[in-house]
Amino acid sequence: MTSAPIRAVAVLGLGAMGAPMARRLLEAGFDVVVWNRSAAKAEPLRELGARVARTPAEAAATGVALTMVADDEATWAVVTGAEGLLAGLPPGGIHVAASTLSLTAARELTRVHTDCGQVFVAAPVFGRPEAAPRGELRTVAAGPSPALDRLAPVFAAYSAQILRLGEDPALGHAAKLAGNLVLAGLVEGIAEAMALAQRAGLPRARLAEVLHAFLRSPVADGYAERMARGDDAPGFRVALAAKDLDLMDGAGALTRTPLPLVAAVRTQLRAALARGWDDRDWSALVDLLADAGG
């Protein structure tokens, strides 16, 4: 694999995270090629100077292809097929998976890219969509060291912090799932605390002040404040949260790790989905709990 600096990056998947990441790469001076299943989402980036590819294969011909799509299934849909990323990425090219994927998918993607003489790197990100345009995401990266060295300026374009976790790409997705497990417990815990306080007569906003006084966590503060003001505009949608909890459950089964917290939060998220709350932010779990007691 070459050690030449990366000049061009393809971004495949232009949703709430992918589009601002592509903008940050443009602002950092990279030549950016974009692709999205619904082509209309690419037009604002074309106006900013990105080139719009017709297929994932065309986008991947740049040599570095970053995917930011919903899940394992969507990733494989982009990667495989006659016009897929795998077909267009040249030998030595790098596929960077920034989505949250299962450990099984990470291992299989590593295998298929290796078989094709390509490189697979896991680089999922932590941060709500509003952090992406500010370059404040946290990237957890794993893959071959030479590839990570070359990708450092790419990650720096949209990340405030980059953590390198080793040579095995599955470690990046293990870190993302483990980190999201902690977030799931935090969100569920704050939601239960809010429901309890409200039923005891303490307004949610006052409990948010209490939590801020001793937790002092930007993440905890953010979710407590959202729940206090009833703001469930989607940042991390219930549907995506449920998908991630399913991935955590699968990782637990694969590694034979008991995850009782995952089981509990999955139950709550499934109840939210049953109400049709797919597109609400997962902080809406507080309303689920508030309603449950009648």
Rank of each mutant, 00 (worst) to 15 (best):
L211Y: 05
A122C: 02
R128E: 00
P258S: 02
Q198M: 07
M194W: 00
D168V: 12
M194N: 04
L211N: 01
V121P: 05
R280P: 02
P146G: 01
L66K: 00
R206V: 06
E192M: 15
Q118H: 04
E83S: 04
G179P: 04
G143V: 10
T110E: 15
A205P: 09
R128P: 01
A224E: 01
T104P: 04
G166S: 11
L273R: 11
V9D: 13
V34H: 07
P124T: 05
L101R: 08
D31N: 13
V34L: 05
V154W: 09
V125G: 02
Y223V: 09
G250H: 05
R226P: 02
V69C: 10
P44D: 13
A10F: 01
G135I: 12
D231S: 04
R199Q: 14
P169T: 13
A131Y: 00
G18A: 11
D281M: 13
T75S: 07
A271V: 01
F214N: 08
A16K: 15
P124D: 09
A251N: 03
A174G: 00
A195I: 11
A98I: 03
F126H: 15
A220I: 04
G93P: 01
V125I: 13
G18W: 01
F126V: 05
R51H: 01
E58V: 03
R280V: 05
L215V: 07
A123Q: 01
A175G: 11
F214Q: 00
A106M: 07
L259Q: 11
A40Q: 14
S159Q: 10
S217A: 03
L66I: 00
D231K: 06
A53L: 02
R266Y: 07
D221K: 12
A184I: 04
G230Y: 03
E136M: 08
A105M: 12
A142T: 06
G294N: 11
R164L: 12
F30H: 13
G235P: 01
R280M: 08
P203G: 02
P91D: 12
L86E: 09
A157H: 10
V11L: 14
E130S: 08
R138A: 10
L45R: 03
A70M: 14
T75I: 13
G117P: 04
S217K: 09
R199A: 14
A197N: 09
